[in-house]
Design a protein around this nucleic acid. Structure first.
Lengths: 223, 223
DNA sequence: CCTAAATGTTACTCATGAGTAACATTCCTT
DNA sequence: AAGGAATGTTACTCATGAGTAACATTTAGG
């Protein structure tokens, strides 16, 4: 009895033989599994305190196996950070046909940014010092970060122009906002009392409201 | 011609012979010089990328010399951070006979905090991952940090009570503020266009004002 | 003076962990 | 079947850098 041909298996195929496409997908999945395990360990114990042997052990393989998927430890960290930054960048790229005010767009950006910082890849952006990376990878990450920074400043600027955001120093505001959001990666613990969405909302609220008391007729924002 | 006795030398003494007190002071000065050089290098190249040989070279001595003043590389980093944290803590401890409002006290705290983050020891707090430290030292630093956090929350709380600060989630506010201030250590460069005091003021302003536009009668704070 | 403490040097040890060489196995292709 | 790509293993090499041993020199003080 011959095994069923992979190309015939459209639905419900428990066969151990994989199609070429499936094989490629397996590889991508394994790559991602390495990144995920690595990110978790890097965040928990720190990049330098985590050896690739640690990462491999976590996945029930040995260190040389990892080198089938990555060129170096450096590349592993770099990819983790890139994943995280791409999540944020997706949130920062403007939607073409949007009629939202600058403040509304900024709030959405801040909340997605904040939620990203509660996830493994997002955390790795701020929890690992960029000095751990090779000069080339460091430069590339800086490029991605400044792209996000530019996008955020753009949103702030347009908010000032449409009157939804108070005039302020855009540069300082962007730095302060990014700083407050990045900090989440340092104090958030998955088992905590606040869910990521809650943290995101509260932090965005605070940055919008500020510390100074509202005047009576504008005391609290709804929702 | 006998050298002047150290005890006689009250003023203007270029003698190479040091009094016992002066010797002790020399030692303390040298210790501090090591810390200063180390902090600068740690911040610039990263803790793990900086060897004690690097630090020693910077001071025109050799590595074993440093071990006369510190037990381990770990201790050097720890002391750098402790210095920085003590600067902030000094700013966070309440002045007994003060009649300032909560917001005024918080602004002063934020500005001093921000300025500390532009200095070598302040930077080392946030630019070095706490995973680089021994468990004991890490715990001690965490203790100092949470002491500052408690002080900050106390000031915020009292500001809410006296009406100078809008009601808000104190925990979230304290985290966001500390995050925004800590971030300064990551982007500030000594040669930049903004002086530390300027950065401190602008960042504090932003955190107080928030992003939302003021209502007409309270549009801008004076100064 | 003579000893002890402090301060500095040169020349090591030694653990760690990134990265590699060489080899085994499995699966797909022809 | 046979060759080769992909994936995995065991058993190393090798650089780095923290920390130390042993030794030299100066200074303080009895």
């Amino acid at each position: 009895m011959a095994p069923p041909k992979p190309t015939d298996a459209v639905l419900a195929d428990p066969s151990p033989w994989r199609s070429p496409a499936q094989r490629g997908r397996d590889r991508a999945l394994k790559r991602e599994a390495v990144l995920k395990a690595a990110a978790r360990l890097f965040n928990e114990k720190g990049f330098h305190a985590t050896s690739l042997d640690d990462v491999a052990r976590q996945l029930n393989v040995t260190k040389p196996t990892l080198y089938h998927y990555f060129r170096s430890k450096d590349e592993v960290l770099f990819e983790c950070c890139r994943m995280g930054l791409e999540m944020i960048e997706a949130a920062a790229t403007p939607v073409p046909g949007s009629s939202a005010s600058g403040l509304e767009r900024l709030r959405a950006l801040m909340e997605q940014y904040a939620e990203a910082m509660t996830m493994d890849f997002g955390m790795s952006i701020t929890r690992t010092p960029d000095t751990a990376l090779s000069p080339e990878n460091r430069a590339e990450l800086r490029r991605l970060k400044s792209q996000i920074d530019r996008a955020m400043r753009g949103v702030i600027q347009s908010g000032i122009e449409d009157g939804s955001i108070a005039p302020c120093d855009v540069r300082t505001a962007a730095f302060a906002i990014a700083g407050a959001l990045n900090a989440i990666a340092h104090w958030y613990k998955p088992g905590g009392p606040l869910a990521p969405a809650e943290i995101a909302r509260q932090t965005a609220d605070f940055l919008i409201q500020g510390l100074a008391p509202r005047t009576p007729e504008r005391r609290r924002r709804k929702r």
